[in-house]
Amino acid sequence: MTKMIFVNLPVRDLNAAEAFYTALGGNKNPRFSDDRSRCMMLSDAIGVMLMTHDRYGDFTTRTIGDAREKSYALLALSVDSRNGVGETLAKVTAAGGRADPTPPQDHGFMLSRSAEDPDGNIWEIMWMDPAVAAGDGPVG
């Protein structure tokens, strides 16, 4: 079986979070979604579990932090083309995200911009030249 990763995030507004992650390219998995959580699959191996604060509290006794005030993680998601970075950023911004909470980076062989979801989590949307990613091209 392919290894999978699930990013579990507490959210204040489940519907707003679902709209953002749909725009990011996610598809809701209804089998693991209910009135307190949404499973948004970004690929066959990458899932984002969006949970209301009360549901998230079922998994931890720790205080839920506010990602709009403190950084807990920087998450990155690749897209298939250089143009896809801007296209994806436009979609998530239209769905309630905030564009470029961190500075854009363009290194020629790699481009990244960021989007903040409605709860303050930052996603880098990035493209890397496939030749560089495969180790065949020069870096920089």
Score class of each variant (00 low, 15 high):
residue 131 A to Y: 06
residue 81 S to Y: 05
residue 74 L to D: 08
residue 119 D to S: 09
residue 68 R to V: 06
residue 49 M to R: 00
residue 56 Y to H: 14
residue 36 R to E: 13
residue 140 G to Q: 13
residue 108 G to Q: 06
residue 44 D to K: 06
residue 67 A to D: 12
residue 59 F to Q: 08
residue 61 T to K: 12
residue 130 P to D: 09
residue 127 W to R: 04
residue 93 T to E: 14
residue 43 S to F: 02
residue 66 D to W: 02
residue 65 G to E: 09
residue 124 E to H: 13
residue 12 R to Q: 14
residue 42 L to F: 02
residue 107 H to M: 14
residue 67 A to C: 11
residue 28 K to V: 12
residue 127 W to I: 04
residue 9 L to P: 03
residue 24 L to N: 08
residue 46 I to F: 07
residue 16 A to P: 04
residue 129 D to C: 05
residue 13 D to P: 11
residue 67 A to E: 11
residue 67 A to V: 05
residue 6 F to W: 07
residue 105 Q to I: 12
residue 26 G to F: 00
residue 59 F to G: 07
residue 100 D to S: 09
residue 82 R to I: 03
residue 36 R to M: 10
residue 4 M to N: 10
residue 102 T to R: 12
residue 127 W to T: 03
residue 41 M to F: 02
residue 139 V to H: 15
residue 70 K to F: 12
residue 88 T to C: 15
residue 116 E to R: 10
residue 88 T to E: 03
residue 111 L to W: 03
residue 37 S to G: 13
residue 77 L to T: 08
residue 22 T to E: 07
residue 76 A to Y: 04
residue 109 F to S: 01
residue 104 P to A: 15
residue 74 L to P: 00
residue 18 E to W: 00
residue 76 A to C: 14
residue 2 T to L: 09
residue 43 S to G: 10
residue 104 P to Q: 10
residue 65 G to Q: 12
residue 108 G to S: 10
residue 108 G to N: 11
residue 6 F to L: 06
residue 36 R to V: 10
residue 22 T to V: 09
residue 26 G to V: 02
residue 122 I to M: 05
residue 103 P to N: 09
residue 19 A to V: 01
residue 128 M to K: 04
residue 63 T to P: 00
residue 140 G to P: 02
residue 89 L to T: 10
residue 116 E to F: 00
residue 23 A to R: 05
residue 31 R to N: 11
residue 94 A to D: 14
residue 15 N to A: 14
residue 12 R to T: 12
residue 4 M to W: 04
residue 128 M to L: 02
residue 140 G to S: 15
residue 34 D to T: 03
residue 49 M to I: 05
residue 23 A to D: 04
residue 109 F to T: 11
residue 101 P to V: 07
residue 98 R to Q: 12
residue 81 S to V: 06
residue 38 R to G: 01
residue 80 D to Y: 01
residue 34 D to N: 13
residue 78 S to P: 05
residue 75 L to R: 03
residue 128 M to R: 05
residue 61 T to C: 04
residue 42 L to D: 02
residue 102 T to E: 14
residue 88 T to S: 09
residue 13 D to Y: 02
residue 101 P to T: 11
residue 120 G to Q: 07
residue 60 T to W: 01
residue 109 F to E: 10
residue 1 M to Y: 04
residue 71 S to A: 08
residue 85 V to N: 06
residue 67 A to I: 03
residue 107 H to I: 08
residue 62 R to K: 09
residue 44 D to I: 01
residue 33 S to F: 03
residue 1 M to Q: 13
residue 109 F to M: 09
residue 138 P to F: 05
